[in-house]
């Protein structure tokens, strides 16, 4: 089913999303990949603040190419999510509600998603030029020294994703293999 949602990703919206749904997201989302996750995780373990409010937020696992003059952002497709698995349950426990990436997640992440009622979306891997067109604003808000791995605040319009794992733990990747 096609769905259009706006951020923040509140509980009522989470409950309406099912594995296999095609979803267009509009609103503010944040980027973080390997190095930024490691830093946020360390900060949280030390009881320090992290650069944005996790409550009802969506994280996009992205490290874009540099923007040309006049472009909002460069190529901007998803990276493989499983590398973030180690850090994800702590983020979910602190309010993160949605993640956009590609590929499988660990058992621990899925269990934490069910416990915290969160959603895992996939964007199409290798479609970074197309996806960049859906990003209307981009600003580095933290960890500038990490270059492409810095945390960015993005404003997206009708950003196309597919629900892979819903808040009940249904997993589209597994469903399609069982039915083939």
């Amino acid at each position: 089913m096609d769905q259009y949602i706006n951020t923040p990703l509140t509980m009522d919206k989470v409950k309406g999303l099912q594995a296999g749904d095609y979803v267009y997201i509009t609103g503010t989302i944040y980027t973080a990949r390997d190095a930024a996750h490691q830093r946020m995780y360390q900060a949280m373990e030390e009881g320090k603040e992290i650069p944005f409010d996790l409550k009802d937020s969506i994280l996009y696992y992205l490290g874009p190419t540099p923007a040309r003059e006049g472009q909002v952002i460069g190529s901007a497709g998803p990276t493989t999510s499983s590398r973030m698995d180690k850090y994800t349950p702590l983020l979910l426990d602190n309010g993160l509600k949605g993640m956009i990436g590609k590929g499988k997640r660990s058992k621990e992440v899925v269990e934490s998603m069910v416990k915290n009622k969160a959603v895992y979306f996939a964007a199409v891997g290798g479609a970074g030029a197309l996806l960049s067109k859906k990003i209307k604003a981009s600003k580095v808000i933290a960890y500038d020294d990490l270059g492409t791995e810095a945390i960015r605040e993005l404003y997206v319009e009708d950003f196309p994703v597919i629900v892979v794992i819903d808040s009940k733990g249904n997993n589209l990747y597994e469903i399609v293999l069982q039915s083939s």
């Binding site: 190419t65 970074g128 030029a129 197309l130």
Partner: peptide, 21 residues
Amino acid sequence: GQLAENLDIASEDSIPICQDT
């Protein structure tokens, strides 16, 4: 279809095909 469109956008608008260059 999206992947084909992505190739068009990459060459027309000078955006790398994939962000992992």
